[in-house]
Design a binder for these strands. Structure first.
Lengths: 144, 144
DNA sequence: CAGAATCCTATGAGATACTG
DNA sequence: CAGTATCTCATAGGATTCTG
C-alpha cells in the first residue's frame, strides 16, 4: 500500500468500528455514523488545543505554566479543561508535587505516545503544505 | 527515527514555520504562536466535518448527495460550507455537470491527496485506540 | 503556581423553507 | 439535485476574579 491507494476500510475494520450501513456493494458502501468510534475519538482530538498540547508534551513532561508559555494564547481555563479531557481519555497523566507553591507536571501516557506518530505526521504535512494552501486561498478569493 | 523519539522541531523547521519565540536553548524553546502556519492549517482540518469528507472522497469522486449519505448526520448547510472551505484551501475540486437536474461532483486535488496519508494514519489510530480510550474514560469517571 | 468559579460572547451548527 | 437564505440555539472558549 503506497500513497495513492488508500484503504478507506480502515474506518470500518472487521470488528465493527466503522459501523457499516446499507451496503450497496460499491460506491458509498460505508458511512461515518454519529457514534462511530472514529468520530468519537476524532471529535475530541479535533478541538482547538488538544493537538497543540500533546505535541508540546512530546519532548518530556511539562508543568502547567510551561505549556502555557508554549501556547501563548491559551487561557488557563481552556488549558485546565483540555488537560482534564486528555487525562480522562488516558492520553496524559497528571502528577502533583506538594511543594510550597504546588507544582503540577503533565506527561504523555504510553497510549498518548502512540498518538504522537499520527499527530506529527499531520503536523509535518501542515508545515509542508501551508504555503500551497495559502496560495490556494488567495487564488480562490481572487477568482470570486 | 523510530516511534518513541519524536522530532518536535517538525513544528519549527529551518524556514521559520514554527515561529520560534524566545529561544532559551532548552526546555520550551519553541511555541505555537496564534498565526503559526501549523495552527492555521490544523484549525481548518480540525473542524467537525473536514476530515470525514476528505476520507470519504479518498476512494474517488463523489456527488453532493453521495457524501451526504456517507455522513448521515451532516446538514446540507454544513456540507456546502465545508465543501467551500476545502475548495478554497485547494484540497478538493468542484465539477458541475450541466444535466437536467444539475449534478455536481467533488474530488480530491493532488494537494488534497497528499493529506490522505496523514489523515488515514490518524483514522487508523483512532480505530485501534478507541477501546483503550473508552476504558480510560470509564476508569476516570469511576475514580472521580 | 495551578487552578476553580462566574460571567459573557462569538460562532459552529441544526432545522426549516425556498429556488434554478 | 444542489444548493441559498433565515432563524435559532448550544457551546466552545475568552476575560476576570478569587484561593489553597
Amino acid at each position: 500500500m503506497g500513497q495513492g491507494e488508500i484503504e478507506v476500510t480502515a474506518a470500518a475494520s472487521a470488528d465493527g468500528p466503522g459501523r457499516l450501513s446499507a451496503n450497496h456493494r460499491h460506491q458509498p458502501n460505508w458511512s461515518f455514523d454519529p457514534q462511530c468510534p472514529v468520530r468519537d475519538v476524532l471529535d475530541r482530538i479535533g478541538d482547538k488545543w488538544s493537538t497543540l498540547i500533546l505535541v508540546t508534551l512530546a519532548n518530556g513532561p511539562h508543568r502547567f505554566s510551561a505549556v502555557q508559555r508554549a501556547i501563548p494564547d491559551i487561557s488557563k481555563r481552556m488549558l485546565t479543561q483540555t488537560f482534564r479531557d486528555l487525562e480522562r481519555d488516558g492520553l496524559i497523566a497528571r502528577t502533583v508535587f506538594p511543594t510550597k507553591p504546588p507544582s503540577v507536571e503533565y506527561c504523555l501516557t504510553p497510549l498518548g505516545e502512540t498518538l504522537l506518530e499520527p499527530l506529527t505526521v499531520l503536523v509535518r504535512w501542515a508545515d509542508r503544505s501551508h504555503t500551497a494552501i495559502r496560495n490556494a486561498r488567495l487564488a480562490y478569493d481572487g477568482t470570486s
